[in-house]
Design a protein around this nucleic acid. Structure first.
Lengths: 343, 343
DNA sequence: CGGTGGTCAGACAACGCTGTCATGCCCGCA
DNA sequence: TGCGGGCATGACAGCGTTGTCTGACCACCG
C-alpha cells in the first residue's frame, strides 16, 4: 500500500494507484490502458498485471471530461412504454451502440415544460446529441440548444423556430393509400376518426383525408370526427353514421388507440364495416377480421434519426433537412370485405 | 472578453468566464449556481445577470466527477422493443426521474458476452447502479460488480454466484392459476407449450405445470412441448394432440410469442380448444375469443427493481433479497368455453 | 481602543484522466 | 569521441467543478 491509496482503502483504484504499484508514471498507465504505442512490451505487461491485480477500471467520466465529448446521445419521447416509441428507442440504441455511444432515454410525458427541463438536464450533461419526439410545436428548447450547440433531430413532428433536422412520416401518403384502397373496394361513404387536433400528426391526417376525398370525387358529407376519443365517443358516433341517410360503409382511424376503440365499437354494434387503421400493431393479423393498416416504420424512423444525428456529430454542417419516410399499406381482410366476416 | 475565454471563442462559457465578467471568484459563481448561502444578494444578482447574458450552464460531468456520483442508473435488457422490457424501462425511468437520476438503457440482445461488455462499459462510466434482466444464469459480471461496488438488481431471472437483489415473477403461481382455472371449467387433458428450456423462466413454468397437474390428479400423459417454437411447430403438435386418444381440450402457452403461434394454429386448424396464455398483451381482449392470460406486471416489476436499487444507493446494507411478484389471472373468454366461440 | 465573532469572498487543491512537451537513453555513424 | 535521431517514459498542466480553509471587513462589546 502506498501513501497514495491509504486514505481511501475501500475505494476504486485509480491510474495513480496502478502507476505507483507498477513503478511507472500515470501517463504510462494511460498509454497501456488505451493501447497507445510507445510502451515497451515488458513494461506494458507489468502494468497490465497490476491493473489486473488491483481490479483497476478506467474512469470514463474523467476521461470524457478531458476529451470534451461524452459518447452519449439521448432520446426524449412521450412514453417509453408506447410501442411506437419503444421501437424507436430500440433502433436509436442500436445505432448508438454500434458507434460506441450510450443512450440516455427520458420521458417527457407529453408535457412541453417537462420536455424542456429534460432537455436542459441533458444539455448540462453535455450529451453529444439528442433525438426528440417533441411534445408540441413550440421550439421551447431552441435557445438552450442554440447556445450549447447541441445537435438535435426531431422525429415524427416538426417544430417551429430554427430549422432543424426532422424525420417525419408520410402522413398524407398514408391516408391517401388508405382512402384509395377503400374506394378500390367500392366504398364511397367513409368516416374518419382522428386524434386531438392539437397534435400536428392528427391535423395532417385529417387534412389528408379531406383532400383525398375531394380529389377522388367522393361525397363531401362531413364524416370527420376529431378526438380526443374514447371507445364510447367512437361508439356513439359510429352508430349514427352507420345508419341514417347515406350510411358509411368504411372507417379510417387516425391512430392505434382509436383503431382499438373502433374495433370494440364495431363489435359491440355488430356493424360489418370495413376498417383501415393508422399504425400497425402486434396481432393486427389475429383480430377477426384481420385489420388492414397503414404501417409507419418506427424502427426505420428511429434509425434514420440516429444516423442523421451521428452525421452531425461527425461534422456534417449542411443545411437542416427534413426527411419524410414512406408508409406502407398492409392489406389484410378488414378493408376488403363487407358483410359478416367469416371465421 | 477576458484572456481566459479568448482561446475558445465559440466554446461554452465556464464558471471562470462568468467569474471574470462578474468580477468575482469562481467559487462565488459556484455558490450562486448551487444556491449556497453566504452570498450577498446584490453580488448574487450580478452573477446571475452574467450567467444569463453569457448563457452559462453548469457542466454536470465535471460536477459529478468532483462529487463521485453520477446520478445515473442503467437498465440492461434483451431488447427494448419487446413490450415486456419497454414497460419495465418506462417504470424504471420514472423511478429514476423522480429521484433526479437519468437512465441509460442498453440492449444485450440475449448475448451473455455482450451483456458483460455492456455492464463493464456502464461500470466504467460509474453509473450509480444497474438493473439487469440477465441473459443467462452465469454471473459473468460478478467480478466486475464486486470490485466496483456497483449495486445491481436482477429482474425476471435469477443468477448464480454472489447473492444479489432479485425481482422475480411468480411463475409457479401463475401457471397453477392457469391450470386450476381450466380444471374448474371441466378440462382434464391440457397441453403445455413452453419456450426453450435454456431459459430459466421456461423451465420454471414447465415444472410448475407438471407439478400442478400431478397435485390435481390429472392424467399424466406427457403433453409438454418445449421450444424454441415456431407457429409451424405448434401447429403440428396441436393437430396431433387434439385428435388421437384422450384428446386435449385446452392449451397453456408459456409466453407471448407462443400464445400467438397457438392462436394462429388453432384458427388454421379450426380447433375450438380453450387457451390460457402467459403474459398479457395489448388487444388480448380483442382477439376472438378474447384470450385469458396470466398477467405479470412488468411495470410493477420494474418499479420494484428500481426502488430496491435506490434503497441500496441510499445506504441499505441489508442482505440481498429476492422478491417474488404475484401474477394475476385475467379471465376472458378463451379459457372458459369449449366449442365454437360465438361472435 | 482592542478583542470577539459573524458575514462574505477568494485561493487552492482535488476529482481521474489525457495532451503536450521535455527528458534521458541507446544506437549508429562519421 | 561526438552527435543526430529515434524510442520509451515522465512531468505538468488542464478539463470544469466543488470542498476546505483562510482572510478581509465590519459591527459590536466591554
Amino acid at each position: 500500500m502506498t501513501a497514495l491509496s491509504d486514505h481511501r482503502t475501500a475505494a476504486r483504484p485509480t491510474m495513480a494507484d496502478v502507476a505507483a504499484e507498477a513503478h511507472v508514471s500515470v501517463k504510462t498507465v494511460s498509454r497501456v490502458v488505451n493501447h497507445e504505442p510507445g510502451v515497451r512490451p515488458d513494461t506494458a505487461e507489468r502494468v497490465r498485471a497490476v491493473i489486473e491485480r488491483l481490479g483497476f477500471r478506467r474512469h470514463d467520466g474523467a476521461r470524457l471530461m478531458r476529451q470534451g465529448r461524452t459518447f452519449t446521445i439521448a432520446l426524449v419521447v412521450e412514453d417509453l412504454a408506447n410501442p411506437f416509441y419503444s421501437q424507436v428507442g430500440a433502433a436509436v440504441e442500436r445505432e448508438a451502440r454500434i458507434r460506441q455511444h450510450q443512450l440516455i432515454t427520458a420521458s417527457a410525458e407529453g408535457s412541453p415544460s417537462r420536455e424542456r427541463a429534460v432537455i436542459e438536464a441533458l444539455v448540462n450533461r453535455r450529451v453529444d446529441g439528442i433525438v426528440v419526439v417533441p411534445a408540441d410545436e413550440s421550439a421551447s428548447s431552441d435557445a438552450v440548444l442554440e447556445a450549447s450547440h447541441t445537435p438535435i433531430v426531431y422525429m415524427d413532428r416538426p417544430v417551429r423556430g430554427t430549422p432543424r433536422d426532422t424525420i417525419l412520416s408520410d402522413n398524407h401518403g398514408g391516408i391517401r393509400s388508405a382512402v384509395e384502397h377503400l374506394v378500390a373496394h367500392g366504398h364511397r361513404n367513409i368516416a374518419f376518426y382522428g386524434d386531438d387536433p392539437a397534435f400536428w400528426t392528427a391535423r395532417q391526417r385529417r387534412d389528408a383525408f379531406v383532400t383525398t376525398q375531394q380529389s377522388l370525387g367522393l361525397p363531401t358529407t362531413p364524416r370527420v370526427s376529431m378526438g380526443p376519443h374514447s371507445p364510447a365517443s367512437v361508439h356513439e358516433s359510429l352508430s349514427q353514421w352507420a345508419t341514417g341517410p347515406e350510411p358509411i360503409t368504411a372507417v379510417i382511424t387516425g391512430n392505434n388507440r382509436i383503431t382499438l376503440a373502433a374495433l370494440l365499437a364495431l363489435r359491440e354494434l355488430r356493424l360489418p364495416l370495413s376498417l383501415v387503421g393508422y399504425d400497425d400493431f402486434e396481432l393486427a393479423a389475429l383480430i377477426d377480421p384481420p385489420v388492414t393498416v397503414v404501417h409507419q416504420d418506427p424502427a426505420a424512423m428511429g434509425q434514420k434519426a440516429a444516423q442523421q444525428l451521428f452525421a452531425r456529430l461527425l461534422g456534417d454542417e449542411s443545411q437542416a433537412q427534413t426527411v419524410v419516410m414512406p408508409t406502407r399499406l398492409i392489406v389484410r381482410a378488414s378493408g376488403v370485405r363487407r358483410g359478416t366476416p367469416t371465421r
